[in-house]
Computed example of a mutant assay.
Amino acid sequence: MFSGFIFDVEGTLVDCVPQTLKSLQEAIERYGPPVPYNTLQLYSGLDGDQTLQLVVPDAAEAVRKDILAMQGKIYREKYLNDVHSFEGIRDVFQSLVRQGGRIALATDCKGPELKHYLSLLDVDEFITAKACGDDVEHGKPDPRLIGLALRKLGLTGSRAVMVGDTPYDAEAALEAGASAAGVLTGGFSSEALLEAGCFAVQEELRALLPSLVTANPRPNP
C-alpha cells in the first residue's frame, strides 16, 4: 500500500468543472472572440496561462492575465456558491488514514475558492499537508506542486500516488516520481487518463479506493 495519497481538488473532490469552464468562457468573450466549451474542456486542469496560450494564441501576456483575473471574479460571484463536493469523500479519506496512509491536497486553486471547498469537504482532520496555487507559480502539468506536497508529507515519490481527474494531474505526478490514478468526474475519458499514465481509472473516488489500497508503490529508481 502507498504511504502517501495526494489528491487534486477541483473535479476530483469537488464537482465544479462545468462552472469553472463556463466562467472562463465568459471571461474570454469579454476580451475577444468566443471559444467553444468543448474546446475549453480539452484543457480543463491545465495551467490557466498555458490554456489561454492555446485557445487565444493572439492574446498578449497582459491580456491573458486580465482574462484570468476576470474568470476568477466571475467564478466567485456567479458560480462558487453553487458547487458541491462529490459523495463519499470523507469515507474514503477516513479509510485511507485508518490504514496508515497520509493525505495531502495538491491543487492549483487558492484563496476563497480553496477555503470554500474545504468547508464543503469537511475532511480537515484527515489532511496532513496542502500545496496550492498560493505556493507555486505554475500549475499542472508542472510537477512542482506535487513535489511540494511530497516534501510536506516527508515522502519520496515512489511511496505516493496522485489522484486526479485530468491527464495533467497524471503527467505532473509521474514527472514528480509518484504514481497516478484517475477518476472520470472531470470530463476526460478513461482512455485519456490511462494514456497519461494512470495505473487505475474509475468513475468516481469511492470506486477507486480498492485500487489505491491494493496497488504496489513504484520501485525506487
Rank of each mutant, 00 (worst) to 15 (best):
V14E: 09
G101C: 07
N38W: 01
Y117F: 15
P167L: 02
A181D: 10
E61G: 03
L145H: 05
R218W: 11
A192I: 02
R98T: 01
F2G: 05
I28W: 03
V56L: 08
L205K: 00
G48T: 09
L96W: 01
R144Y: 07
L46A: 03
V35M: 09
P33I: 01
Y117M: 09
G72H: 12
Q25G: 10
E61K: 10
I28G: 14
C16G: 09
C132D: 15
V55L: 03
L150H: 03
G139M: 11
V136H: 08
C132V: 02
K140C: 06
I28Q: 11
G133F: 10
E204W: 04
E203D: 13
R64C: 10
I103H: 13
Q19S: 15
Y168R: 07
L155H: 15
S189R: 03
Y168S: 05
L105K: 02
V9P: 04
K110W: 14
S179W: 07
S95Y: 06
A207G: 02
T185M: 00
L208K: 00
L42A: 08
N38D: 12
S179F: 09
K22E: 10
G154S: 05
A192Q: 15
V161G: 10
C132G: 07
G48A: 13
P221A: 15
I67H: 10
R98F: 01
S119D: 15
K152F: 01
L150T: 02
Y37V: 02
I6G: 02
L46C: 07
I103F: 06
A131H: 04
A176N: 14
G177L: 06
P18T: 08
A106E: 07
D165R: 03
S3V: 06
L114E: 06
P18Y: 12
F86Y: 15
N220E: 13
N216M: 08
L96Y: 02
C109V: 12
V97A: 09
L120Y: 00
R64G: 08
L208A: 00
L193I: 07
K130N: 04
D8A: 07
T12Q: 02
G88A: 06
L194V: 06
F86W: 04
T51K: 09
E87T: 11
R102E: 05
V63M: 14
D47W: 12
L42D: 10
R151L: 04
S95H: 11
D169W: 10
F188W: 11
S44M: 08
L114P: 10
P36D: 05
V9W: 07
Y31E: 13
Y37A: 03
A106P: 04
L120I: 05
A180Q: 13
L194G: 04
T156G: 14
L205S: 00
R206I: 00
R76K: 11
G111S: 15
L209C: 06
S158T: 13
H84P: 00
M1S: 12
A196W: 01
A172Q: 04
G154C: 04
S3A: 14
A180F: 13
C132S: 15
G48Y: 11
T156C: 13
Y31D: 12
Q94W: 07
D134S: 14
S3P: 00
S23Q: 06
F7L: 08
L46T: 03
I67S: 11
A62V: 13
L148A: 02
I103L: 08
F126H: 06
V83R: 11
Y31I: 01
Q99A: 09
P143H: 09
C132F: 06
